[in-house]
Design a protein around this nucleic acid. Structure first.
Lengths: 230, 230
DNA sequence: AAAGGGAATCATACGCGGATTGGTTAAAAT
DNA sequence: ATTTTAACCAATCCGCGTATGATTCCCTTT
């Protein structure tokens, strides 16, 4: 009404001023559109146009039901495990393990403390004592996690946990009753020992190689038809 | 009452029978303790003792407010971004990036489609056109994510997203007003071009090396005092 | 008649209170 | 004295109401 000609431009200017004034405080959320439009004295349509400009510019971020916030994006867009697991397959999970875990083992060889290594050795013994596949699986998981923990890098540990959770949901329901207990000559026993030994000897490349070999063995056991088909 | 002497043993046997019977169905959650105790005709105390045994054995797991489930552990223990970010530091995040992202780039060089590469090249141009640091950051993020996406592995992409979210929360609030816009000779421009070119030429090792080099540059810029201190 | 503004409506997300469930403790019963 | 039962606690889930951004429709104004 005052100046319909400039359209949303006045609203954009006012909104930028408001943003600058608000940015000095720690608050990142700005009022609802209905309030703000009245507070700034512009129509909601013009306000929305201005907001759209700022959003395309990356200065604010909006979401239905939550509000409008300043900043490039949601600080904590929860990336759900099920979201990842929902659109993937065991082969990709295995591939990711083959890429990530050897590097984690290398890092573990560099940063593991003596107590870390002692804990791994104890898990090694326990895997041999497992009387059921479920027990073995638990201790196997524990050992792999101990290795990730030994990297002394909480980010790597967290990524490992995410990967592990995805793996569990994806292959969920496999290997139910393949046998009473792991056979004594199961390849993983020797594999695990090689990995832990390499870590103990601070052999970075050896630890990564041993882990890679181990996971390739696991992959072969998981998808046994592969070589015959090719 | 019937046989107080054997204590919880009878309950344990009955519970194991119930578990075996239920395990054939796909259901993993068993009834509430109050119902189950009445259904099996044992006291809740004995039932809980039996449940404790099975839990220590790893066959079931329980959680307050949710229930009791068969299986080694919660299939979806939500690993929160903030949980990871809460107990780490920028150095560890950078280290994790240096470990993960080069391997992702290698995978991208193997699996990227032509449209993937075209999208990357477009982002390359856009980074040069960015007039503000925030715009540059957005496009930079987009480019790195495009590379992860080009790996054609949703697990790797998910892990990258998690890592990225952690990075954003950890370094949150840095580099506010270091300058109006990225300088034309910013190292990242050439770095990014090298990475994309290596991916386009299917040079696996080259892509990984270029990404590693780029991240080392970023690390150096992030922690500039390092070399002087040593 | 055209255009812009305002109100109603829709879809999604948050918040709160009740209900459910494992964990714990105390009273009661045998 | 031991076991069973009940009651209570803490944590979680679920449903409903509210708030918010997105969209549509109608009306006023020029």
């Amino acid at each position: 009404m005052d100046d319909p000609g400039n359209g949303g431009h006045a609203a954009l200017v006012q909104l930028q001023a408001y943003l600058a004034q608000m940015d000095h405080a720690g608050e990142t959320r700005l009022p609802a559109e209905r309030e703000l439009s009245e507070s700034l004295g512009v129509s909601r349509g013009d306000l929305r146009k201005a907001l759209a400009v700022l959003e395309k510019d990356g200065r604010i971020w909006r979401h239905v039901g939550r509000g409008t916030f300043v900043g490039s994006g949601p600080v904590e867009e929860t990336i759900g495990i099920s979201e990842i697991a929902g659109r993937t397959n065991p082969a990709d999970v295995m591939r990711a393990r083959l890429i990530i875990e050897p590097e984690i083992a290398r890092e573990a060889a560099l940063h593991a403390t003596l107590s870390d290594i002692a804990a791994m050795r104890q898990s090694l013994v326990q895997t041999r004592d497992a009387v059921t596949w479920r027990q073995y699986e638990n201790i196997d998981n524990l050992l792999h996690r101990q290795i990730a923990q030994a990297s002394r890098n909480n980010v790597l540990l967290g990524l490992f946990d995410v990967l592990n959770a995805v793996r569990r949901t994806v292959v969920w329901g496999r290997l139910r009753s393949e046998g009473a207990r792991p056979p004594a000559d199961h390849h993983s026993f020797a594999d695990h020992e090689r990995i832990v030994e390499a870590i103990a000897e601070r052999d970075l490349g050896g630890a990564a190689a041993a882990m890679r070999l181990h996971l390739q063995q696991v992959e072969r056991r998981l998808i046994p038809v592969r070589e015959a088909a090719e």
